[in-house]
Design a binder for these strands. Structure first.
Lengths: 216, 216
DNA sequence: GATTGAATCATACGTTCGTTTAATTCGCGG
DNA sequence: CCGCGAATTAAACGAACGTATGATTCAATC
């Protein structure tokens, strides 16, 4: 289906990816037109169709490019952790899981803001298309962390553990989201920046994950 | 600007609100057309313009109707808490704050799924319009809880406390979101339902909120 | 029974959307 | 110098969008 250029990697392609990443992050998938993307990229309107096939496939390519380094960092962090000890602590697992989400979304540069916004856009988009944007990679690394947390937190039911892991993702994603989108006039900006938020998140999430099981 | 009906409360109006709430929750604001809303409501295409003025004002009305009972329950919970003791515990504050978010979004009925989905839609919509949808009421009750948490958690910087309160909202909203939108084929459904999720959330969030301040 | 005004209706307007088509440009190997 | 294919371009397509308009229905009022 998707027409694929046969030989070289044109510069227009990456410029389209850059423009799409920025605009999708700022205005959402449906709020961004192909015309706006190609205009920002300095390309022709038909370039999206030529290089990616459709607007949806362009979004999928953008999502893959954004998620891949985060996924790799989470995977590597778990690998080094398991290479050192067979039973990592909850705090170490939280750090390895949530840390990359902050490293790739550093608040200092504009790219971090776009990344966090884009991830929330993907996670919260009601379209079924969005479910295929992230790809299967994120699931497998999630399953590995789930197994590691299961060993670190005996006595916790699988359902409650899944709830807590969803909470981890929610805290990192939504926090970064509001930081970047809301000037929040009545509130002083968090001048500390992304480094502080990363510490706060690890503290917050380690305590949350370490909580004893709920009484049933 | 917005034409307002002068005398009675027509049934069409609430049917439009119901249909809009459902469709906005399922497909997002931009993904829902006025035509789809009026068709589901069994009303004429022009009914939205007549009763609400525009699609955006309809969304604002839907958001107000959804958020108001949650806001009232949070306010009432804090009131009864403060009437009993001047210094509520962290766990009590978490229960009073996060509890209504689960009560209004009970997983058993379809309305709860719509509500949670809709709240996430509002929170994550990149449009500036969305910022005015929730109204100022949520801010004031949030400020009251912030003050109460400040007294319950001395030694925590205002910035870190704000981070943690954002985390509370994120956990409840996004958890409910994924529960309802993702069948997650490889995962058994959380048969326990909303009551268990509410206990899990209170446990999770109480531990998170009670964590000692991060080292700076 | 005529009048009034809220409510609903069919319909059209102008715009914007994603996609497609066909022509054109351009670099490079033959 | 020619031709070939990748890349880009201009232009148009049909569809769907939000909104506005004017006619029409209908129950309550005098």
């Amino acid at each position: 289906m998707g027409r694929v250029p046969r030989v070289a990697i044109p510069d227009t392609r990456t410029q389209l990816l850059d423009a799409a990443e920025q605009l999708f992050a700022e205005h959402g998938y449906r709020g961004t037109s192909v015309r706006a993307i190609t205009k920002l990229a300095g390309a022709n309107l038909a370039a999206v169709g030529y290089h990616f096939g459709s607007k949806a496939e362009l979004m999928a390519a953008v999502a893959r490019r954004v998620i891949e380094p985060i996924d790799a960092a989470q995977r590597a962090g778990l690998d080094t952790l398991l290479a050192r000890t067979a039973e990592p602590s909850v705090g170490e697992l939280v750090e390895a899981f949530a840390g990359p989400l902050f490293d790739e979304m550093s608040a200092e540069d504009a790219g971090g803001a776009r990344t966090s916004r884009l991830i929330v856009t993907i996670l919260s988009d009601p379209a079924e298309e969005a479910r295929s944007w992230s790809g299967p990679g994120a699931d497998t690394v999630g399953e590995r962390y789930l197994a590691a947390f299961t060993r670190a937190l005996p006595g916790l039911s699988p359902e409650e553990l899944r709830f807590r892991m969803r909470g981890m993702l929610a805290v990192t994603a939504v926090d970064r989201l509001e930081v970047h989108q809301q000037p929040t006039p009545g509130c002083a900006p968090p001048a500390a920046g992304g480094a502080a938020a990363r510490r706060w998140a690890v503290t917050f999430l380690t305590a949350a994950m370490s909580a004893p099981p709920s009484p049933n």
